[in-house]
């Protein structure tokens, strides 16, 4: 099991901030699975400026998720 975290407006759209999931093999397949369960979240995840962090490291494009313990989806950051 791994943690999937949503922040900011993504959490508002989904109605959850943290879930324990058995991760699929890749980031793309995780996005597809979340979008399949919740099309509104799927649309928000593919919105402009949404980034993914795998085990706290920002990741561009796809990434393998084998052995990963945490995936976070980050909407555009606003500053403090």
């Amino acid at each position: 099991m791994a943690k999937v975290l949503l922040f900011g407006r993504l959490a508002d759209v989904a109605g959850w901030r943290e879930r324990e999931l058995v991760l699929p093999p890749s980031l793309t397949s995780l996005r597809d699975r979340l979008a399949g369960e919740d099309p509104a979240l799927g649309a928000a995840l593919s919105g402009p400026g949404v980034q993914a962090a795998v085990d706290q490291v920002l990741t561009r494009g796809d990434a393998a998720l084998a052995g990963v313990s945490e995936v976070a989806f980050l909407p555009p950051m606003s500053g403090g």
């Binding site: 950051m77 606003s78 500053g79």
Partner: peptide, 27 residues
């Protein structure tokens, strides 16, 4: 840096409800 690039998400609560804020052009 903190006002524009730090990894925070910020929501403003007002009489008309709540809204997420993005950095301003000035920031």
């Amino acid at each position: 840096y903190l006002k524009s690039r730090a990894p925070f998400w910020k929501k403003s609560h007002g009489p008309g409800g709540a809204r997420w804020i993005e950095p301003t052009d000035t920031d």
